[in-house]
Simulated assay, not measured.
Amino acid sequence: MARKLLIGAALIIGALWLNNNSLFSRPAAGTEPKLIAHRGVAQTYHREGLTDKTCTAERIDPPTHPYQENTIASMQAAFEAGAAVVEIDIHPTPDGHWAVFHDWTLDCRTEANGVTRQTPMSVLKTLDIGYGYTADGGQTYPFRGKHVGEMPTLAEVMDALPEGRFLINFKGGPADDGLLLARAVAQNPAWADRIWGYYGAAGPTIAAATATDLPGGTKPVMKECLLRYIATGWSGHMPEACRDTIVFVPQNYTPLLWGWPHKFTARMEKAGTAVVLLGAHEKGDPGTTGIDSAEQLGDVPDRFGGYVWTNRIEMIGLLSRDVSREE
């Protein structure tokens, strides 16, 4: 009897191993990581004590390049560095535009005050978006006066970078914002091929994704997807929450995922879902950490079939090309 139990257990373990092994799902050699550049080429900042109310412009690292996030120049530089997709942040304005700017309010990065979405684009175009950046606690402001008038509209981004693909982040707002963007996409059909997907605030993200038939990811759906997959993924079952969406996976959560990396990404791809690998998530950190160092990039699986999120595209893009050539 004991022998039969051992044989049965071995067969079950063997079946689980075969069903969740990545050996037969590994992409072809020479596959470069597909990189998502967070805000384009941007100024980085330290994350110690970070909250969702922290003004990150006041804590930047010593600058190593002249670019400001969410500008056309920074997006162009990101694509040239190897980005497959550039993530951008948008807000509707009272005069009928979409402002591409990170913050809900203007006081952190610019010389102005007020709510971004309540400010006409004609006014936003006059602002210095590099005004508030400092790396030394306010002793110097290295970007003041250098980025006046560089806040773009979404239409300007699309016109300036006709080959680029973009992940749209809704910074908040009602579901009607998503429908408003969907109408803009309908009026500009070429945008549908340029928008890789949506994420962020649940209301507008779901509305835009549904109306344009493009993928959208929200934090509640991503959490439900991963928790359900951890519970049932051993069987190959794909939870409904994991279908036709975008799933962000912190690097330190990957050991929990059945079939990681290649079987997992293949299953998600079959379900119409894109996998985006983040840096390790630290408890209490409200943001999205990236693959931002050579060490972190070295931990990305060989021939990874998903996307890799980075805040340092100017460095990671070069390193990832070197890795691909070595293969």
Rank of each mutant, 00 (worst) to 15 (best):
N21V: 05
S22T: 06
S22Y: 03
L23G: 07
F24A: 12
S25P: 00
P27M: 14
P27T: 07
P27H: 06
P27V: 11
P27F: 08
A28R: 03
A29H: 09
A29E: 10
A29G: 11
G30S: 09
E32G: 09
P33D: 10
L35E: 03
L35N: 03
L35S: 00
I36W: 00
I36G: 02
A37K: 01
A37C: 13
A37V: 12
H38D: 03
R39D: 05
R39Q: 11
R39V: 08
R39C: 08
G40Y: 00
G40D: 06
G40S: 08
V41N: 00
V41A: 11
V41Q: 01
A42H: 07
Q43F: 10
Y45S: 06
H46A: 15
H46D: 15
R47A: 11
R47P: 02
E48G: 11
E48R: 12
E48W: 08
L50V: 04
T51C: 08
T51R: 06
T51G: 08
D52H: 08
D52S: 14
K53S: 14
K53F: 06
K53H: 14
K53N: 12
T54C: 04
T54G: 01
C55E: 05
C55L: 07
T56F: 01
T56W: 03
A57F: 02
A57V: 03
R59P: 01
I60E: 08
I60K: 06
D61L: 15
D61C: 14
P62A: 15
P63V: 08
P63L: 12
T64A: 13
T64D: 13
Y67R: 03
Y67G: 05
Y67E: 02
Q68S: 13
Q68G: 12
Q68A: 13
A73T: 10
A73L: 12
S74Q: 07
S74A: 15
M75Y: 14
M75D: 09
Q76P: 07
Q76R: 15
A77W: 03
A78T: 05
A81K: 02
G82N: 11
A84P: 01
V85W: 03
V86D: 04
V86I: 13
E87A: 08
I88K: 01
D89R: 07
D89Q: 11
I90N: 00
I90V: 15
H91P: 00
T93N: 07
P94L: 15
P94I: 15
P94D: 14
D95K: 06
G96C: 11
A99Y: 02
A99V: 07
A99K: 01
V100K: 02
V100R: 01
F101R: 00
H102D: 09
D103V: 00
L106M: 09
D107V: 05
C108F: 04
C108R: 00
R109K: 15
R109F: 03
R109W: 06
